[in-house]
Design a protein around this nucleic acid. Structure first.
Lengths: 78, 78
DNA sequence: TTGTAGACTGGCGTCGACT
DNA sequence: TAGTCGACGCCAGTCTACA
């Protein structure tokens, strides 16, 4: 019932980050991004660019396609 | 030998669009984007945002994860 | 540790026109 | 049909700082 890819993306990032026991701070440094920006993305307030999506996937140690497959799953079940 | 996700993304978009016999113009209208911008993306001069990636995938009638899987394939074999 | 705010730079995305 | 250009508005992404 959501339908917003930006919010769904944020939820997935937050879920995976927590599952790996990472802080926003460490994820930010791993992905070469700002911590404040990570927060905005996780809360669906900012939509990342292509390069940023790749950086986040790398930092979370999974492929971009697998990451977005999880986003699609959230979208489908919402 | 490439390593640039932005260029790879553009190549994949162009390849799929041509395989479906679409013009940049029709893809642009299907994805609610500007034709000039489609050209920039295909040539790796602009990197799309998350929402734009979803719009392009929809217009090309494939899932975002499948689209990015093709991008990863190009990156791997380059 | 996280959310948010304000200010800032650079770049996304649009539009019209020309090649 | 596709590439590119200039101008434009708006937002991605950074940084500092405070709750």
């Amino acid at each position: 019932m959501d339908g917003d890819p930006v919010k769904s993306f944020g939820l997935v990032i937050k879920r995976i980050r927590k599952a790996q026991g990472l802080s926003q701070e460490s994820l930010a440094t791993d992905a070469n991004l700002d911590r404040a920006f990570i927060s905005q993305v996780e809360n669906g307030r900012k939509q990342p660019s292509l390069l940023t999506i790749f950086r986040l996937a790398d930092a979370l140690k999974l492929s971009v396609s697998d990451l977005l497959k999880q986003v699609e799953a959230v979208l489908a079940g919402s």
